[in-house]
């Protein structure tokens, strides 16, 4: 019989975020992989495609925008949709369900760990890009403003969609096989590995439904000169539309997560 109140969902969520970051940092292999993989890809693609796309825009510059956007999808959506089924199999979630910790705290903890790993990943990618691959950083504060909201909104949407998708894999072991193809196909369709406007029209249209295309395009608006906007499908960066579409996905992800989240694998 306590006089004290049960700690708030937010306080527990922040504590969970700290714990999850600590756990992530201790898994050395996955830290190295998560942080170094985008740099390796940049190195490979930057060496293969050395042509300039237009005046002063190298493929590396174009590709860095795509890598940051797909980093949003990898650290959020992909990681969570694979890790949550594993935690479900291990009984981690059932144990949490038996405590006063609400699902919202669990979600908050996940968003924190996703955000932190993503910021580190992007920082390392940009440092490597500038030092070794001739990537230019924007100087206009307005571009950094776009960059900031894209990362916050994109990581939130990616987290919510990862939690939402985590009900689909039937087991932790099979999760990667279910989730990874979705991500890889989206990356190809969304203009991460190739110049988006070079893709077939139907691919572009499919990609336009999903948020990765918009995150990638948003990042291009940050890292490419404004003159390049003329080469986009719409002839502009469509910044406003990008914001609304990612926000819509964030809301959809949240609603689905709240409605369908499972603590236990159905037997």
């Amino acid at each position: 019989m306590s006089v004290n109140k049960v700690p708030s969902a937010l306080a527990i969520g922040i504590a969970r975020g700290g714990l999850e970051v600590k756990q992530f940092m201790r898994q050395r292999e996955s830290v190295v992989f998560t942080l170094a993989f985008p740099i390796m890809l940049l190195a490979i693609f930057g060496s293969v495609f050395t042509n300039e796309l237009s005046d002063g825009v190298t493929f590396s510059q174009y590709f860095v925008a795509g890598m940051i956007a797909s980093g949003l999808v990898n650290t959020g959506f992909q990681q969570l949709a694979i890790m949550i089924p594993v935690e479900r199999d291990f009984g981690t979630l059932k144990r949490l369900q038996g405590t006063p910790m609400p699902a919202s705290s669990y979600f908050i903890g996940k968003s924190i760990v996703v955000f932190v790993t993503m910021v580190i990943q992007i920082a390392l990618l940009l440092i490597a890009g500038v030092l070794f691959f001739g990537v230019n950083l924007p100087t206009d504060p307005a571009k950094w403003f776009t960059f900031t909201w894209l990362i916050i909104l994109g990581s939130a949407a990616s987290t919510a969609l990862g939690i939402a998708f985590s009900v689909i894999p039937k087991s932790g072991r099979g999760a990667s096989a279910v989730v990874s193809p979705v991500v890889i196909i989206l990356q190809f369709f969304s203009g991460v590995f190739f110049v988006f406007t070079d893709l077939p029209g139907w691919m572009q249209q499919v990609a336009a439904i999903f948020p990765l295309k918009w995150m990638t395009q948003g990042m291009r608006s940050v890292f490419l000169p404004d003159s390049f906007a003329a080469q986009e499908v719409a002839g502009t960066w469509e910044t406003g539309r990008t914001f609304w579409i990612i926000l819509a996905w964030l809301i959809a992800g949240l609603v689905i997560s709240i409605k369908t989240f499972k603590w236990e694998q159905a037997r």
């Binding site: 201790r26 935690e87 009984g91 981690t92 405590t99």
Partner: peptide
Amino acid sequence: RIGIVLQSTNDAGDLSVYETVAHFAKYYS
């Protein structure tokens, strides 16, 4: 007000005993 010890849990291997117990303490009043 209740505590549950489930049959088997196999998780969070990268945390210490103290860290885990101290973390769960934050869930309760």
